[in-house]
Design a protein around this nucleic acid. Structure first.
Lengths: 342, 342
DNA sequence: TATGTTTGTGAAAACGATTTCACGGGCTGG
DNA sequence: CCAGCCCGTGAAATCGTTTTCACAAACATA
């Protein structure tokens, strides 16, 4: 029922061979004005659209990019996928989207599925870019891919990211400059993620540079709700000398932490300052607004696609592109009590 | 470089014909234990994975579902796509994802692109399900599709949605019960959307049922930021007898409106109550929490995929599935001053 | 005028799978 | 013991394109 009109139908209608139809459609070889017009007329009348499958089988390359992300529910990934989608569309490509739901084991399975679809290339956000058998496999098979959000340590892997360590270093410095001394580091399930590690390193470096004691990250269940977070935070913030500030490894967690602190009877920022990481749009819609590291999430998706295309088409070597971040001040980060407001 | 191992390679290795390899892989016909073992061994050793393209060309059907949504940036759509993705994966399918960026003209182009990829079926959220040439085309070609979020008026179109009118009717009744009399209706760019119209109808019906004067929806630029919304709202809320409550056609808009009212010096909910629609997760993370209609967004995506499969595989006729919604009380909706809190 | 070089076109061979058809061998049943 | 049947298998057709090769006809060059 679906598609009964093939290139053969068009050829008959236009009174020429299928080869000529193909040439007219793809402008892959010169054709006479006469036959050109007849073919175009036939295409229009029949509503013919060449089957991507037939094309792909011959060329062994689809106009499709495979995408693997942890989850669409996190606005960070949703935004970067939005960027990929728009950049891909500009280049007449579509996205084959999959999500791991934060299960590292799913990565290889999804990549295999996508490779079986003969995607032109892949864009991935993985748990760990350093030790990753799936990426090794892609390297071995010569299938082009670009990482997003991941910050690969080993060379030879293409990536679009921000300098996570530098960002948390700067953010931590801002907190220290505001007078905070006891700064907690709260991480989500992302503790199994290379970027979360890099972020914690930046925090630790800044603390040490200021002669302060860095804390081990407190891991919160990333998918947990505010009540469960309140419970987890109670011990830390009801201790004799509680932290006066909390650095969260991402915005979603930070928003949940703000709510959890509130249910513990703590005021933000009066009792505890909070900062996040990512710069999701909704961080600016809440009150007080969320202090965070603003990363160009959507742009990262666009750049990843652009980079992938230079690799596919121009055979460009893999490289790491670090996009600039900015510290976004917000109401959740205030000076520690005795220190005057800047 | 990419995939050099085809079904032929496997056949040679296993010492049989490609037909037999196909039979073993798909269990499409009985094979002897002997050859079965040899083929499986060869598949494992060579890391063979059948090309979806070759398969698709023969069967004229891919293991792919086409998705068209307005935007990934809205958590509502991101959540329903997440649901689709997980439901599709259970059935060994992947999503071909596209977004219109709220441009109705893009719908037909994207659908054509997806049809050219021979998707097994489509899941769409369109601007208007009633007058839609693209859907007519799909009907004519017999390509199965399911609408999500849209509430089609004409029969014969499959859809998964909530009863938008009933939901805003109930929400408006709640506001009226809380003592509000002058209730503004704020709509986004969604005014060109059938569900936004249905939502406004529910509001109007509830107002009229209570003998109150319904207001024409005030359209705000959906993609505008809080400052621009503040400007647009200034006239309405600085009038002599300003509304005491505002019903917003979706949560994203509601969050922005709360911020805009705040910059106008109005307190929420003390001066103005606000309610949204959708039930995005972050509505519960802000303070005060957002009063809204909670819709099972993710579930809608899952059900849409399930329905699509019953249509594809069992030839089930299109039907409209309305999922239950619940009113989610929130801090942004308080009783009007003189009325005692319930 | 004879010879090379375009130029436009068609026939046919891929691409990688599924599927139909035919066939030989081992059954079963009379 | 023979006819008929089922079972496992291979050869070949097929799906809808792109692309190579060959071949005319038209043209430019000597």
């Amino acid at each position: 029922m679906a598609r009964i009109v093939t290139i053969r139908t068009v050829a008959e209608r236009a009174g020429c061979s299928i080869a000529t139809v193909s040439r007219v459609i793809n402008r892959s070889a010169p054709t006479s004005a006469d036959v050109d017009a007849r073919v175009r007329a036939a295409v229009a009348e029949l509503g013919f659209r060449p089957s991507e499958i037939g094309r792909a089988l011959k060329t062994l390359r689809t106009r499709t990019l495979g995408v693997v992300i942890p989850s669409l529910t996190n606005p960070v990934f949703a935004a970067s996928v939005a960027g990929m989608q728009s950049a891909a569309r500009e280049r007449q490509h579509t996205l084959l989207l999959t999500a791991t739901d934060y299960d590292p084991a799913a990565e290889s399975e999804l990549v295999e599925t996508l490779v079986a679809q003969n995607v032109a290339g892949l864009i991935l956000t993985v748990a760990d870019a350093a030790e990753n058998a799936t990426l090794d496999l892609l390297d071995a098979e010569g299938i082009p891919y670009v990482l997003v959000h991941n910050e690969p340590t080993r060379p030879g892997r293409a990536a679009v990211c921000v300098d996570n360590a530098a960002a948390t270093f700067a953010l931590t410095q801002t907190m220290i400059a505001a007078g905070h001394r006891r700064i907690a580091y709260l991480a989500g399930r992302f503790a199994t993620s290379d970027r979360a590690r890099r972020r914690h390193e930046g925090y630790r470096a800044a603390m040490e540079a200021a002669g302060l004691e860095p804390e081990a990250p407190l891991e919160l269940d990333y998918l947990g709700d505010a009540p469960s977070h309140a419970e987890a935070l109670a011990g830390l913030f009801r201790a004799p000398e509680p932290p006066t500030a909390a650095l969260c490894s991402n915005d979603l967690l930070a928003l949940s932490v703000v709510g959890a602190l509130r249910t513990l009877g703590l005021r933000v920022p009066d009792d505890v300052s909070v900062a996040g990481f990512d710069g999701i749009a909704l961080g600016g819609a809440v009150h007080p607004t969320l202090a965070t590291v603003d990363t160009p999430t959507r742009l990262m998706g666009e750049h990843a696609v652009a980079m992938l295309f230079t690799m596919i088409e121009a055979g460009a070597p893999p490289r790491v592109e670090r996009l600039p971040f900015t510290l976004r001040p917000g109401g959740t980060l205030a000076p520690e009590a005795p220190v005057p407001r800047v």
